[in-house]
Design a protein around this nucleic acid. Structure first.
Ligand SMILES: [Zn+2]
Ligand SMILES: [Zn+2]
Ligand SMILES: [Zn+2]
Ligand SMILES: [Zn+2]
Lengths: 158, 158
DNA sequence: CCTTAGTCGTTATGATATTTCATAGCAACC
DNA sequence: GGTTGCTATGAAATATCATAACGACTAAGG
């Protein structure tokens, strides 16, 4: 078992398919994928890495799509709110969702050497954090599960 | 099964015992629990809530123990580095460790209503995130596992 | 036309974190 | 005693991340 983010793949298709899927979802759910929102999604899809809000803003600014922080944050809020992107708490950064579809509780593997980020989905109910919460009578609404370390390539390189 | 953070307990003992345990550990490991470090630990222990660095700094400043951000951050770095406190990524804030002792991979339950935070320990190797990483050939060095939701009290109140 | 909800652009501000350079205290060693 | 190395501090500036607030624009529905 390997992960797209950690191995070679047709990345152009990654981007095209990702945008198309979100476009379909927005139509289906009556959401407006405005130009800025779409562009931010493309920027996030352009690499399997997490990008900071200001890094994204730099690109928008260069393209004349906005220059102030709220422009980027609003687009990111839209994308994360609807599950098209995720926020990586450990990095204060964002990444496009790579398990697109329904709502899910993502798990991230973050390589500290090459900065790649892989997303896995997981069932909170069956996870350890779910078990702990249940035992404590705690009702989970959202989870943050991120592991930092070395990806297969970087382990090999080291 | 319940959690200290989520139920009534002798909180004064919580603080005293917590400081005493860290003092012993510092002696044992040859670490220096300086006045500022000790005071920051006490501040963190004073509540089962996460506190922001500047919130802590305000207290230090009022007591003449330092007024600049690095003063608070250095003490927090010391405490987190040695496992006496943890950083809650979701909140950009810090909390005293409540499972004091050896190195561990903490799991946090964060109540969004009353802001209490409970810490559990867990074995990464046996957790879902560990299983996912293993399958991907990813070597974990650190994990962030935080659940946000409602604690037992707040569930009942709602 | 008018209203309303959503979006957008901008200014200003707040909150969090790091970098940099300089200094103080202390113990080991010669 | 003087030097060296180490750890902790102090102080200033800067970098990074995030939100509040307000007015203007626009599309959809009556
Ligand atoms: Zn996802
Ligand atoms: Zn890597
Ligand atoms: Zn702990
Ligand atoms: Zn609560």
């Amino acid at each position: 078992m390997t992960d797209p983010a950690f191995e070679a793949h047709d990345h152009h298709a990654c981007i095209v398919d990702g945008v198309a899927a979100v476009e379909r979802a927005c139509v289906a759910r009556g959401l407006q994928l405005t130009q800025t929102r779409k562009r931010v999604l493309e920027i996030l899809l352009s690499e399997h890495k997490a990008m900071g809000a200001y890094e994204i803003l730099d690109v928008l600014r260069a393209e004349g799509l906005g220059s102030q922080p709220p422009v980027a944050y609003r687009a990111l809020e839209f994308l994360t709110k609807h599950g098209f992107a995720h926020r990586i708490e450990r990095l204060n950064a964002f990444i496009a969702c790579s398990h697109f579809g329904d709502a899910h509780a993502p798990v991230f593997l973050i390589c500290r050497r090459c900065n790649s980020v892989a997303e896995s989905r997981s069932d909170v109910a069956k996870s350890e954090i779910g078990r702990i919460a249940k035992g404590a009578g705690f009702v989970i609404e959202r989870t943050v599960r991120e592991a930092e370390g070395l990806c297969p390539k970087c382990v090999e390189a080291a």
